[in-house]
């Protein structure tokens, strides 16, 4: 299996308090040096809470944000977004909010035609034929083509968004919270559609979500992000069945589950670290029940701990230890 996507030491900093001339007052690191690979035909899930840098990462991967440093390689070639017409054929993006990702003043046909026209330079009849194929793939009726986005429900609009990504014929799709704006009964329809499309067209997914259960249901491997860094990465089954990083376990225990008693899994005063004033050492240590002296001095590096799992923690949970929930 070759790597569809390879990210090495990718970082992104945002300027805070911009001035007209001269350097900005401060910088916020949204993504710390990040190294990841996604194999071809794999689904890599990325989970984390708001502010952990998952959307910033996604936008860098599709070239909507320039990285501050580091490299992105797609199918062995370095990312080059100089020519949008070349770049868009390699990697595409499905947005979180299906309605606002569709221009309210364009018909569905116009929206689906754009990638065919600008990325593939297809002529009229070829475009019409391709649109028909794509609509069939996402289970939408052809009569929808002349309608405007506001006439669709969230689930239908998200299918149109997926159809647009398919129209570009890219092998890699970045799915940024693709179902979090949808109702549960519709969410399952869209997730199943994504699974079918992946099998049919041999796609590679990077699936970003805050919902652990959804990520578990669709992913081969999972990366857990906290404060801009990967804290744990491994096969979905292993990471969720036996979380080793204390943060992963906290996430898993916080998700409300039928049949588990209500209890706040951590102290009630905890807050995320301040990005303007990042803490020394491990970013999670203030919330971590297993924090030790070393955690305050040094940042843990992501290291392989066997079984395909990589971990950034000085004092990880024991695999064999029973879940203390």
């Amino acid at each position: 299996m070759t790597d569809a996507l390879r990210i090495s030491a990718l970082t992104k900093s945002f300027d805070v308090g911009k001035r007209l001339f001269g350097p900005s007052k401060a910088q916020v690191r949204a993504v710390q040096p990040l190294t990841l690979t996604v194999a071809e035909n794999e689904t890599l899930g990325i989970v984390g809470e708001s502010g952990c840098g998952k959307s910033t990462l996604a936008r860098m991967l599709v070239g909507l944000l320039p990285p501050t440093s580091g490299t992105i390689e797609i199918a062995g070639a370095a990312l080059d977004n100089a020519d949008p017409a070349v770049f868009g054929r390699k990697i595409q993006y499905v947005f979180q909010d299906p309605i606002s990702s569709l221009n309210p003043r364009k018909t569905i046909r116009d929206i689906l035609q754009a990638p065919l026209k600008h990325l593939h330079r297809m002529d009229g009849p070829a475009r019409a034929a391709r649109i028909r194929e794509i609509l069939a793939a996402v289970n939408l009726r052809e009569e929808f083509l002349e309608r405007y986005p506001h006439e669709f429900s969230g689930g239908q609009a998200q299918r149109i968004g997926i159809a647009r990504a398919l129209a570009a014929d890219a092998r890699i799709l970045i799915l940024d919270e693709p179902v979090s704006a949808l109702d549960v009964s519709v969410q399952a329809q869209v997730l199943n559609l994504l699974a079918d499309l992946k099998a049919e067209f041999g796609l590679t997914y990077l699936f970003i979500s805050h919902d652990l259960a959804v990520v578990e249901a669709v992913s081969d491997r999972v990366a857990v992000l906290y404060f801009g860094s990967v804290v744990e990465i491994g096969s979905a089954r292993q990471v969720f069945a036996a979380p080793r990083h204390p943060y992963t376990r906290l996430l898993a225990q916080s998700a409300p589950v039928v049949g588990r008693a209500l209890k706040a899994p951590e102290g009630r005063e905890t807050e995320l670290p301040d990005p303007l004033n990042p803490p020394e050492g491990c970013a999670f240590r203030a919330r971590c029940p297993r924090a030790q002296a070393i955690c305050a001095r040094q940042s843990p590096e992501l290291t392989a701990v066997g079984g395909g799992v990589e971990l950034a923690c000085f004092n990880p949970l024991d695999v064999a230890a029973p879940d203390t929930a």
């Binding site: 329809q189 578990e216 249901a217 669709v218 081969d220 979905a236 089954r237």
Partner: peptide, 15 residues
């Protein structure tokens, strides 16, 4: 329809 944590990778029920 609601995916629950701990059931592994699978196809979800949909309405």
């Amino acid at each position: 329809c609601v995916p629950e944590l701990g059931e592994g990778r699978r196809r979800l029920e949909a309405i």
